[in-house]
Amino acid sequence: MTGRQIVLKTLLQQRHWQTYKTFCKEYDKAAKVVDSTLQGKWPSRAQLHRWLSGELKGLPYSDHCRVLEAMFPGRSIEELFSLSNGGIPAPLVTTEPTKSGGHVTEICPTSQMADVAAVFSSRSAFASAYPPSALFDTAREINAAGLSLNVLCQSYPDHRLKQLLESGTRIRCLFLDPQGKAIRAREDEERYTDGTLTTLTALNISMLNRLKEKLTPEAAELLELRVYDETIRFNILIVDGTTCVVQPYLPHARGVDSPTIVINDNTAADGLFPVFDQVFTSMWERSSPV
């Protein structure tokens, strides 16, 4: 048992939900979706301690199981209460919870999924299962291409980015040019009339430039910023050449509403990883330095 702990405990730590007050708050959010009558019926402190310490024999009551599965999309209650060595496997392919049917999990045969590890119906569902801290905290290389790259610029702390860069992590960021035609076309498509996307993208670029000024010369060389002016099709995030997150841009829909695909490079002959790796590389080669 040394070094092993309940998967639920590890997931709570990853999301910074491990305090009792925060856990209850997140429990209520999920309960509202599953069954509003379950709000406020979170476990007691002593119950939660038994869950996380591995003292529980069997599984929690069924209502708790329903809410916990909604808190962690793609993970069965059996997985949540299993032991791990600290590493967390990718969730199963999922759809989001619904009020009528609860949490729905669809499992596809591996042979039909190539190197796809998980699929989410929105970016918010993806972010719940894969928080930025889990993606980036130990990364040695991050390649990101898209529109404003909020996952790096707004969802991950500046001081952590600084620590990554100063520890040798290479980060390449490719933004949709805030001065270009393509971003204005996207604003028209999403029905923004106040330059929202232009302003946000320029702000994120400025934030990274300010961060770059605070770095040592060696670390500053590891942070590369570029822009491109083409019709936006995908948001692509590649971490350490092994995990690729792809989010297509849908017509007349905000980026946050986009489905999200997680791809792991398992060297599958018919895999998708090399396809999107090449998309990023070709876009980077056509781009311009900031």
Rank of each mutant, 00 (worst) to 15 (best):
T19C: 13
L225Q: 07
Q18K: 12
Q278E: 13
K57Y: 00
D194I: 05
E189R: 01
K99W: 01
G271F: 10
P132N: 13
R210F: 05
A134M: 14
G146Q: 05
Y192I: 02
E230A: 02
V93C: 09
L135Y: 08
H252R: 14
G168E: 09
T169A: 15
E141V: 09
D277E: 15
D63V: 04
P248E: 11
V151C: 06
Y27L: 12
T199R: 12
C24N: 14
D257S: 11
Y27K: 09
T242D: 08
A202C: 05
T19G: 14
F81D: 11
N209M: 10
L223S: 01
K32Y: 14
R210N: 14
A144M: 06
Q13F: 08
F81A: 11
Q47K: 12
I77K: 07
K9S: 05
F280V: 14
R140M: 08
V275K: 08
R4D: 14
Y228P: 05
E26V: 13
N85Q: 13
L250N: 10
S288C: 04
I171S: 11
W17I: 05
A46D: 04
I261F: 13
T193P: 00
G54K: 01
V93L: 00
L197E: 01
C244V: 09
L59F: 07
G241E: 04
C173H: 05
Y156V: 09
N209A: 13
A114K: 03
S82K: 07
I142W: 05
K21L: 13
L68K: 04
A268N: 14
K99N: 09
A144V: 11
A30Q: 11
P274E: 10
A269I: 13
T216K: 15
S167M: 07
R15Q: 15
D158R: 13
G255Y: 05
F280I: 15
Q13S: 11
G195W: 07
K99G: 10
Q154F: 03
K212E: 00
V33F: 02
Y20Q: 07
L59E: 02
E69H: 01
T105G: 03
V93E: 06
E213K: 15
M113E: 05
R140L: 11
L147M: 13
G168Q: 05
A118G: 07
L161M: 15
C244R: 01
S258Y: 00
E106I: 13
I263E: 04
T22G: 04
P131G: 04
C244T: 03
E69Y: 00
E230K: 08
N266E: 04
R4W: 12
Q154M: 06
C173Y: 02
L80C: 03
T196H: 03
N204S: 07
V151W: 01
W42N: 02
A145V: 10
F175A: 03
A139K: 07
A134F: 10
L197C: 08
S133Y: 04
S282T: 15
I107S: 06
A219N: 11
S121I: 07
G101L: 08
Q247A: 02
P60S: 12
A182H: 05
I205Y: 06
E166T: 12
A269P: 02
A127P: 00
M71C: 12
K57R: 08
S44C: 02
E26F: 14
N143M: 01
G86P: 06
W42G: 00
S148K: 00
D177Y: 08
M207H: 13
G195Y: 07
R66V: 00
G180L: 04
S155K: 05
A145Y: 03
T2C: 00
V279H: 10
V34M: 11
V239Q: 01
G54E: 01
L164K: 06
